Computed example of a mutant assay.
Amino acid sequence: MVLEALEKILDINFRPNIDIRNVSLINYESRDKLQKEGDSLKINISELSEKERRELLNVPPEQFEIQGRVLDEKEESDANAIEQGYDESADEIIDYFDGILSENYLSIVDASLYLRALINQKDIDRDEIHERKKDIAKKYGTDAFYLSSLVTAGYFDPDGGVRDIYVGMELNDQYDRYKFQERLEELVGKKLLCIFVENDDTIHDVTQETIQRLALYQRKEPVNEWLDMRGIGDQCEEIIDGALTNLEEEYIGIDYDQWSDGDNLYVRIHPHSLPDITS
């Protein structure tokens, strides 16, 4: 059914015996509208005309294996938003980590960059962002939700922190990119890079979660030497400030940096400034 629709929209004819089991909507560097890999067909959004994108919106979205729910909007074209928002910085991130990350992780990063483009271009509320991340996790695995949050928060950007970990390992004589992938998977699985604070969190819960993560950090001794807390908006800022007050009372001399980027508040805790809290 979807192939028949694509034939009309793109003015092409598929061979009667062509083996296509899923169709994906993506944005990749190529002048081809279509790219076939095995039994998968990829449609390059960036090479579609505005008319083709509009007509594509009329195809039921469940017929596609959609990356980040690219076309699951009725009011306007997500594809157009992605084309505007998925800029050179996103391409640079993919180019940098290509050959460093596993294929699965690179796909998660790519899908998350599409999502970040949509967030930047459109008014998407937190519930919708959460659902889109769940879509990515459903396709790529449970770790993808946290990894996606790291990507959209900028941790894979040039000054985001993940590259510093990679470069630090690269300078080590025992460096191996596969070891970096292993370390990154551990950091993602244990959530040892950032605690994402939400509006409905409580100061007590964030305090306890931070203590638990810091204790886990001291037991694991990961390659990064920091653990972040991050929140968006005044409510999250109040929660983070309250949690920091609790931590300062509990651990005299705890060292951290604090900065803001627009509505985003970041706190970077240095776990080695704490006494042993693993017991």
Rank of each mutant, 00 (worst) to 15 (best):
C194M: 10
E249C: 15
T210L: 08
Q174D: 14
D228W: 12
L192C: 04
R183V: 07
I203F: 08
T152N: 10
L147K: 14
G154F: 11
Q212A: 14
Y155K: 11
D176C: 12
D263M: 06
D255S: 06
I277C: 12
E182F: 08
G262I: 07
R163G: 10
R268T: 11
G253K: 15
I165W: 01
Y217C: 07
I203H: 03
R268A: 06
K179Q: 09
D276Q: 12
D255R: 15
Y146Q: 08
A215Q: 04
I211K: 13
G262S: 10
C194S: 12
D263A: 06
G233Y: 03
H272F: 14
Y251I: 07
L147W: 08
Y166V: 03
T210K: 04
K190E: 13
K179I: 00
L193A: 00
L184E: 03
D234R: 06
I240Y: 04
V223M: 09
L193H: 02
Q212N: 13
L150D: 02
Q235D: 08
N224G: 13
I277M: 10
R230N: 00
L150K: 08
C236S: 07
C194H: 01
L227G: 02
I277S: 13
D263H: 10
N246G: 13
W259T: 07
I211W: 04
N199W: 00
S149T: 02
L227Q: 02
R163Y: 12
V188D: 00
V188P: 00
I239R: 00
R163Q: 15
L214C: 11
V223C: 04
L214V: 06
D234L: 01
D173K: 15
V188G: 04
N199G: 07
D261A: 07
E250R: 14
D263P: 14
A243P: 01
L244P: 08
G160I: 05
C236K: 06
L184K: 03
G161T: 12
I269S: 04
T245R: 15
P222N: 01
G189E: 13
K190Y: 13
D200A: 05
F196L: 08
F196S: 01
D257L: 06
E198F: 04
L274G: 12
A243V: 02
D263Y: 05
L193V: 07
I240D: 00
K190Q: 02
D205Q: 13
L192S: 00
Y178I: 11
D263I: 08
E248T: 15
G168T: 02
H272D: 14
Y155E: 02
Q181P: 07
N172Q: 12
S149K: 11
V197D: 06
Q218W: 08
V206K: 01
G231T: 02
F180M: 03
P158D: 12
G160F: 03
V267D: 00
G242K: 01
D263W: 05
R219P: 00
Y266K: 03
L227V: 01
V223Y: 04
R213G: 00
G161I: 11
E182R: 09
L244D: 02
A215K: 04
T207V: 03
